[in-house]
Write a protein that binds this DNA or RNA. Structure first.
Length: 198
DNA sequence: TTATGGATCTTCT
DNA sequence: GAAGATCCATAAA
C-alpha cells in the first residue's frame, strides 16, 4: 500500500509558474481523488502542454464559456467534454489572465484499482488510465470538477517523493491535433507501460 | 493486424 | 452544419 495519504496537496501557488518549467515537476506526481470514502490515485506519467495562443489550444481564439478556466490562476482543474462522450482533465498553470494548461493524458494506477476497474468495466490494469478520457472515467472526473481548486480534500495533486530524472523524460509532438504539430509539447516517462500508445 | 463507424457536446462558420 | 486535445466494438485483410 502506498503512503500517499501522508503527503499534503501541492498548493495552487506551485502551479502558478511557467508551464514548460512545470513539466518535469508534474511528471511523477500523484493525482488523488477521494470518492464515497474510497481513495483513488495514480502517478502522472504523460502530459501535454497547451499554452497561450498556441493554435492547438482551446484558448487560441480567446475566451469562451468552455475554456474560461484556462485564463484563471494556476492550480485549478479544467475539465472539458469532447467528441460527444468523453471528459479530459487539465491542470491550469501560470498566472491569471494568461491561458495555459497541462492535459493529463495517462496515469499509473496506485490506489483504488478495484474501484477503477468497476468504473472502467475492464480488468486489464494497463487499460484503466492510459488515455485522457480513460483516466477521467476511472476516477469519475466530470463536469462537476471543472474549475475547482486542486487543493480541496477530495481532489488534488500530491508529492510522494517519487523522483523523475531528466533522462527519464521523453518528448514528442502532441496527439490527436491537426495544428500546432511543430511543437514537441507532449512529455512522458520513458518506457512506462501506462503511457498511451499511438 | 489495421481500418472504420458510432456516440452526440461545444464551438465556430 | 462540421469538426474536434477520444475510445471501443466490430469488420476486413
Amino acid at each position: 500500500m502506498s503512503k500517499i495519504k501522508n503527503y499534503p496537496p501541492l498548493p495552487p501557488k506551485f502551479f502558478q509558474r511557467d508551464t514548460l518549467e512545470l513539466v518535469p515537476e508534474i511528471l511523477g506526481k500523484v493525482l488523488v481523488r477521494k470518492i464515497r470514502g474510497k481513495m483513488l490515485s495514480g502517478r502522472i506519467v504523460e502530459i501535454e502542454a497547451y499554452i497561450g495562443n498556441d493554435p492547438a489550444s482551446h484558448a487560441a481564439n480567446g475566451m469562451t464559456e468552455r475554456n474560461k478556466v484556462m485564463f484563471e490562476d494556476g492550480g485549478l482543474s479544467y475539465v472539458y467534454f469532447t467528441y460527444g462522450m468523453h471528459f479530459c482533465f487539465n491542470i491550469v498553470t501560470g498566472k491569471k489572465g494568461f491561458p495555459a494548461a497541462l492535459l493529463v493524458r495517462a496515469l499509473e494506477p496506485l490506489d483504488g484499482i478495484e474501484v477503477m476497474k468497476k468504473f472502467r468495466g475492464t480488468d486489464v490494469i494497463t487499460n484503466l488510465t492510459n488515455g485522457p478520457a480513460k483516466l477521467c472515467q476511472a476516477m469519475k472526473i466530470d463536469r462537476k470538477l471543472n474549475g475547482v481548486k486542486l487543493d480541496c480534500k477530495n481532489f488534488f495533486i500530491a508529492d510522494d517523493g517519487f523522483v523523475v530524472g531528466k533522462k527519464d523524460i521523453e518528448c514528442s509532438t502532441r496527439i490527436g491535433i491537426k495544428v500546432g504539430t511543430d511543437k514537441e509539447w507532449r512529455f512522458f516517462l520513458r518506457g512506462n507501460e501506462f503511457v498511451s500508445k499511438r
